[in-house]
Amino acid sequence: MSTILKISGLSKNYGALQALKDISLEIPGGSVYGLLGPNGSGKTTMLSIILGVTKPRSGTYQWKGASPNESSSHVSALLEKPNFLPKTRISDQLNMIAILRGIPPEERKLRVEEVLKQTGIAEAAGRPFRSLSLGMKQRLGIAGVLLSNPSVLVLDEPTNGLDPQGIIDIRNLIRDLAAQGRTIILASHMLDEIEKVCTHAAILKKGELIKTEEIRRESRSKAGFVLKLGLENQPVSHIIDALKSWEHSIEVEQTEGFVVAAFSPGAENASNVNRWLSEKGIYLSEIQLHRASLESSFLKAVEDTK
């Protein structure tokens, strides 16, 4: 995947508060890139900067094919909350966005109708923005983003205020858009959302980038459980080779002196794994249920902000 956005050393202060601290990040094209962090971690500030609405204190960002400090025309975004005039009809306001986006006059009406239908608010076309519910406003914000058929979508807490069905609809919509090859940058404070939708994730805490990770949803989702295994005075390769030969192990990897292995439900439980390994002459010094690394990093970020 080629990089669609390169961020280098981005920092931002609001008075004495350092909202972003030297963030460097590369976002691959075609990915669904999650920015995960608790409230106040700097997600919206970072998105505001890469969209050009906020000025960084230092650092640069570069959209593929665009000049520094200027978001490219193929990017569209819903930032924080939908930005619309309260008393104006929503179809008129979408028409205005279509004009700004350079959609030809003969296509505008049809395109507005399409996105309203796509986001499930077609019946509200003639209503003023202020009369919509929170969930409908959020859907309208997404409709505005879809209007110009952008290749990159930046969505800041897109399921905010939606009911459970609305959340499912928007997540499915994001998956559909990603399947069409679009790049999606998604900020959320919900781990569940990032895990379910994203291919990559970056965790932010108090303006700092804690971790970036590729989410391997496929193998882990089939796992019954994941264990972190420690070995005493034995080469790690022994356990890796042994586990790879076992029908119930799905994925095995070495990490920081431990072995993390995902097992199918057929392995039953941790003591069964231990028993099977000891039969092979492999004795464990440590065995514990392993949290996905994204989850543990996120929990650490949340705990540190308390």
Binding site: L51, S71, L79, K81, N83, L85, P86, L100, R101, G144
Partner: peptide, 17 residues
């Protein structure tokens, strides 16, 4: 102020203005 308070200018910048 209507444009600024309701984030319309912010949206225009996002739209490339």
């Amino acid at each position: 102020n209507r444009d600024i308070v309701n984030g319309v200018w912010r949206q225009y910048i996002i739209e490339g203005v």
